[in-house]
Structure formats: structure tokens, C-alpha cells
């Protein structure tokens, strides 16, 4: 029971250390934290429940625009903004999921992409409200819990994002071990068997998709508040696809994989793009290939894989 606790502590210490080690990269570190929240939401939907999606950005964008508009027109309180973002993401997931969760496989993937594209087009056309291609500007979030003001360097932003990412991780950790989490893994393993034990697979998948949408909405809201800008990129296919690659890199269905994959992807992206702005994608591609071939369960499974390799070596031929 102490192992997950130790791992969580290590991640937390690393996050705190990063703050002091890279004081001039806070914006980038904060961006990693926001992506971690998005990739965690994808881990719930894809890693646990096995819902194949390439459109998680739809809920992220909905959360971002909702939180941005809420801050501009209603109330600048950041925590209230996060709740609005979560609600917007969950509402979009529930609404689209009501249709999408009746499909699976390739059909489902195409439909998730379509939903995100439709959202992007709506945001583009509704220029008077969203700012269209210029993006939504003028978001001035208030003090966090009425105490900490967002500063120019991004100190508040970093701790705020870390706190939210930690809370989301903890919540998903609890849910992952709950009966609901177990039933999602059951659906992932065998939907037919889940029906045969009296579960409406459709409704359970819709619940997971909605919850994942809410968390993606939180990620979007965080991004809107901290960067004080929402662009059409929030709905982009690239964002959905990159989130998926991060999850596959780290390993699905175990939450730590989402964290690890995001950190590695973003760090490699950051350094490779700085060194070679034209060919950095090649590095990412090679990394993904290596993981898929040699570590199909993701980088988070490396210790287990090494253990199995060592064991297999001893019992060779048996």
C-alpha cells in the first residue's frame, strides 16, 4: 500500500525541485502540468475504459473558452472558472457521448475527430464572442482563493497548476481503485462479459467519457487562466494527437504513465525543437517507435519489463 504513496511523493518532490532548478522556465513547466491534466483525462477514457478517441481536445477547448468567457464577463475568480471549465467539458462530453458511445473502433475515432473540428469551426465563426482566429483575449483572472495574485514570472501559475494537477491525479487514483474504476477496466477487457453480468456498457462508458470530459475541461480552463489567452488551437487535432502520443509513450491505464509520458514528450520536444527547429519531429517519431517496439506497455512499465526480462533469462527454456 505504500508503493503508490512513495511514487506520488517522488513525483511531487520532482515537481517542487523543478521549480527551483529551472526558475526561468516556469511558463514551460506550467505548460507541462496543464498537459498532464489533459493526458490524465485521456488515460481515464482510453487507458481505463478503452474508449478510442482522437478528439479529447474538444472538451479541453470547451473548458478553455468557457473559463475565459466566464472570467471576462461574469467573475474573475480562478477556482470558479475551473468549475465552469469542468462543467463545459463534461456537458460537451455527455452531449456528444450520448451518440458517440453507441459506436466503437474506427467509427468512434472518426466521430471524436469530427466533434473537435465542429467545435473549432463554431469558435472560428462566432468571432464577436470568441475572437475567432485572433483568439479570446482580455482574460484577467483574479487572485487564487483571494490570496495569490497571478504574477508576471508565473510563480503563482506554477503552484496553482501543480495543486490542480495533484488533485486531479489523486482523484483519478481513488477512482481507479474504486468499483467504478474496476468496471471500466472490465469494459475495456470484455464488453460482452460486462453486459452478461448485468451492466449497461453504454451508460457506464458515457459516465467515464463525461468524467474524462470534465477533467479535460479543467485542463483547458487552467490554460485559459494562466496564459490569459484562448486560441483556436485549443480544439486542434494536433493537441488531441499529441496527448495520445504522450499517453502511449508513458503507458496507458496506470496514471503514472500519463505523467511520465507527458514530461518526456514535452522535454524532448522542447530541447529537440530548440536545437533543430526543422527536424525535431524526427526525434519524437524515433522515440515513439522505440517505445512501441520495445516497451509496448509504455515507459512506466520499464521496471516491470526489466524484472520480467531478468526472470525470463534465469528460467530460459522453461
Amino acid at each position: 500500500m505504500t508503493r503508490p504513496f512513495v511514487s506520488a511523493l517522488v513525483i511531487l518532490i520532482a515537481a517542487v525541485a523543478a521549480f527551483f532548478l529551472f526558475p526561468y522556465n516556469l511558463a514551460f513547466l506550467t505548460r507541462i502540468l496543464i498537459m498532464i491534466v489533459l493526458v490524465l483525462s485521456l488515460d481515464l477514457v482510453l487507458g481505463f475504459a478503452g474508449i478510442a478517441t482522437l478528439g479529447q481536445a474538444a472538451m479541453y477547448g470547451a473548458g478553455a473558452y468557457a473559463a475565459g468567457l466566464f472570467a471576462i464577463h461574469v467573475w474573475a475568480d480562478p477556482v470558479a472558472g475551473l468549475l465552469i471549465g469542468a462543467l463545459a467539458g463534461a456537458a460537451l462530453a455527455a452531449l456528444s457521448g450520448a451518440v458517440l458511445m453507441r459506436t466503437q473502433g474506427l467509427t468512434l475515432i472518426m466521430l471524436t475527430i469530427a466533434v473537435a473540428q465542429i467545435c473549432a469551426e463554431i469558435a472560428n465563426r462566432a468571432r464577436p464572442v470568441t475572437g475567432g482566429a485572433d483568439g479570446l483575449r482580455g482574460i484577467r483572472p483574479g487572485k487564487v482563493l483571494g490570496i495569490w495574485e497571478f504574477d508576471f514570472i508565473g510563480i503563482t501559475g506554477y503552484w496553482y497548476a501543480l495543486a490542480i494537477a495533484g488533485l486531479v491525479f489523486a482523484a483519478l487514483f481513488v477512482i481507479g481503485r474504486s468499483p467504478f474504476g474496476l468496471s471500466l477496466r472490465g469494459i475495456h477487457e470484455s464488453p460482452a462479459r460486462m453486459e452478461a453480468i448485468g451492466v449497461s456498457v453504454y451508460r457506464r462508458r458515457l459516465a467515464a467519457y463525461t468524467l474524462g470530459g470534465g477533467i479535460a475541461g479543467i485542463a483547458g480552463a487552467l490554460s485559459a487562466q494562466i496564459t490569459q489567452l484562448v486560441s483556436l488551437e485549443a480544439f486542434s487535432f494536433t493537441l488531441s494527437a499529441e496527448a495520445l502520443i504522450m499517453l502511449i509513450l508513458g503507458g496507458t491505464g496506470r496514471l503514472y504513465g500519463a505523467v511520465l509520458g507527458t514530461v518526456i514528450f514535452m522535454a524532448v520536444h522542447h530541447t529537440a525543437a530548440a536545437n533543430d527547429p526543422f527536424n525535431w519531429l524526427f526525434v519524437i517519431g524515433a522515440l515513439v517507435l522505440a517505445v512501441v517496439f520495445f516497451l509496448p506497455s509504455g515507459i512506466a512499465a520499464l521496471p516491470t519489463s526489466l524484472k520480467r526480462l531478468a526472470k525470463g533469462g534465469r528460467h530460459a527454456g522453461s
Binding site: R177, S178, G181, S183, I197, G198, V199, R204, A207
Partner: peptide, 18 residues
């Protein structure tokens, strides 16, 4: 565990350990 939890109607619980 899955069928027993579902039979007892506990399968949607999120904040207790399975």
C-alpha cells in the same frame, strides 16, 4: 469481484476501494 459488485448495485461507486 465485478459480478458481485454489480449484483449488489455498487458498481458505480467512485470513492470507495473496490
Amino acid at each position: 469481484r465485478l459480478p458481485v459488485l454489480e449484483r449488489e448495485g455498487l458498481g458505480r461507486r467512485m470513492f470507495a476501494r473496490a
